[in-house]
Amino acid sequence: MDMTIFGDTGLLDTLQHEVAVFARRAEQTRLGGAGQVRNSMDRAAYLLLNRLDKEGPMGVKALAASMGIDSSTVTRQVAPLVDTGLVKRTSHPEDGRAVVLQLSPRGQARLNEVRSSRRQLMAELTHDWTPEEREAFCTLLTRFNGALSARQSAQGVPVAESEPAS
């Protein structure tokens, strides 16, 4: 596909560069909040805790399906969250053989702390933006993430529904 028909190649070069810089900086800081290392959280852990908070207790397969990842990946990512007391494993109320994952009170408190710190960071980074600029940025970033998900889905890569905002 000739990308020049979709716009100026210089603009597309700038866009791809800025996305790469954003990804690197986001990973370096893990968007841990307003300079607070103690409030940083691994991306996988944040997304798992956030999903459990938004959707409630669920089994590994359901959690994997809702996140668009493999069950073995969820099992591997959940293990340290269980070990640190952020997630509890309980028996399914209707089928005692099945395991249900849910946020522990400690996990809920930790997630709230990280969310608050990240919210503060977003406020600081966009303090001189108008509400309309913040909204436009959120709209465009959501649209961009949706386009990435659609592309992955079309290529047969499992993708999650859009992550719930926090």
Rank of each mutant, 00 (worst) to 15 (best):
G146M: 08
F144M: 04
L111V: 13
E124I: 11
V99S: 10
N112W: 09
R106L: 14
E113D: 11
R106V: 13
L31Q: 09
S66L: 01
S72F: 08
D128N: 14
V82Y: 05
R89I: 09
R38H: 03
R118W: 10
V99I: 15
T84D: 15
R119V: 13
G32C: 06
D70M: 00
T142V: 09
D83M: 14
Q16H: 07
A136T: 04
Q108Y: 08
R89T: 11
L31I: 10
D53M: 14
T84C: 11
E94C: 02
K61G: 05
R30Y: 07
N145A: 10
R97S: 06
L111E: 06
R25K: 15
R25I: 09
L111F: 14
E55K: 13
T14M: 00
L49N: 02
H17T: 12
V37Q: 05
R30W: 05
F144W: 05
V87P: 01
S116P: 13
G96M: 08
S40W: 04
T84A: 14
S149D: 09
E133R: 03
E18I: 06
R119F: 12
R24W: 06
T142S: 12
L103H: 02
Q36T: 08
T73E: 08
A98Q: 09
A147N: 07
T142W: 08
H92G: 03
R97H: 05
S72K: 14
E27D: 13
S91N: 08
Q108G: 11
A26W: 14
V74P: 00
S91F: 04
R89K: 14
A20T: 09
Q28N: 11
L63C: 00
A23H: 11
E113V: 11
V100Y: 10
K54Q: 14
R119Y: 12
V99D: 12
A20W: 05
K88Y: 15
T75W: 08
T75E: 08
Q120I: 09
W129N: 00
Q77P: 04
V21N: 05
L63H: 02
F22L: 12
G68T: 00
R119K: 15
L52N: 01
Q16D: 06
V78F: 03
P105M: 01
G85K: 04
L86G: 03
A45Y: 05
A26Y: 15
S117A: 13
S116F: 15
R89L: 14
S149V: 06
A45E: 10
E124Q: 15
L49D: 02
L31P: 07
G35E: 03
R118T: 10
A62S: 05
N39E: 08
A123R: 12
E55P: 02
Q16W: 06
M122I: 07
M41N: 09
A62G: 04
I69T: 01
A23G: 13
I69D: 00
T126D: 02
G85L: 01
A23C: 14
